[in-house]
């Protein structure tokens, strides 16, 4: 591997294929963004359902989470790609990527949301109820805003995992970044060293800004809390 990385002609040949890698990067980005949107929506909906007082909603959320958490993503993708055509459901590889990765990650996100809601003190719900807030209002205005900084770290972990998990469509010839790198690494002069290194670097470029942003955002939220608390202390001092 290191020998290949040291050979400049391999890199020259690789960069001549740059447009193909760019296109593959675009496909990975497309699957990531749309799957992320789907996962967030599902995560919030099922997270709320699993904390609801309605047993039926809780059961539905439980079944969803347990099913997708306890079966491998690869099996789910294979099933949709190879088995569903027999039922006349033929989805494109990119669509399969968005749906499978989105639904799969949604299960993990809903667990994070559930844990976040569970960590909000009961008093907050009771206070909201005493002021005549409806369930939806309580969640949207009181509870969910408070859960954000609690669930942000696990959520970002899931988002980054989601981006990396999109490489699963390589197994069904999805045309994504990993697929292109694999194809390049195994064809012609088989420059697997440069190809996989570039591929890894591109995934890094995709994930690193997300984790960096999340770290900063989390710090800012915590900072704001500190300011609020300090102000509150002052008010209390004056009152005293």
């Amino acid at each position: 591997m290191i020998q290949q990385i040291m050979e400049p002609w391999r890199w020259q040949m690789l960069f001549a294929e740059w447009p193909k890698f760019l296109k593959a990067f675009g496909i990975t980005l497309e699957i990531s963004v749309l799957a992320l949107a789907l996962a967030l929506v599902l995560g919030v909906i099922f997270g709320l359902m699993s904390t609801s007082h309605n047993p039926l909603l809780r059961i539905i959320a439980r079944v969803y989470v347990e099913f997708f958490q306890n079966t491998p993503l690869a099996i789910q993708v294979f099933f949709v790609f190879y088995a569903l055509p027999y039922a006349s459901i033929v989805l494109s590889q990119v669509t399969i990527g968005i749906l499978c990765v989105g639904i799969y990650t949604g299960a993990y996100m809903s667990e994070a949301v559930r844990a976040g809601i569970g960590s909000i003190p009961k008093g907050q719900f009771e206070a909201a109820a005493s002021q005549g807030f409806t369930y939806i209002q309580t969640m949207m205005l009181i509870v969910l805003p408070q859960t954000i900084k609690i669930i942000l770290p696990p959520m970002v972990n899931q988002m980054v995992n989601l981006i990396k998990n999109t490489s699963i469509v390589t197994m069904i010839a999805g045309g994504d970044l990993m697929y292109r790198a694999n194809a390049y690494a195994t064809n012609d002069v088989m420059s697997y060293g440069p190809s996989y290194l570039l591929c890894g670097a591109l995934y890094f470029v995709l994930c690193f800004p997300l984790t960096t942003w999340a770290r900063r955002y989390e710090a800012r939220l915590k900072n704001r809390d500190v300011i609020t608390n300090t102000k509150k202390d002052k008010v209390e001092e004056v009152a005293a």
Partner: peptide, 12 residues
């Protein structure tokens, strides 16, 4: 990156 590249180094 170097750590990554180093993985195969000894064997080469």
């Amino acid at each position: 990156l170097f750590a990554l590249a180093g993985c195969g180094g000894g064997d080469d």
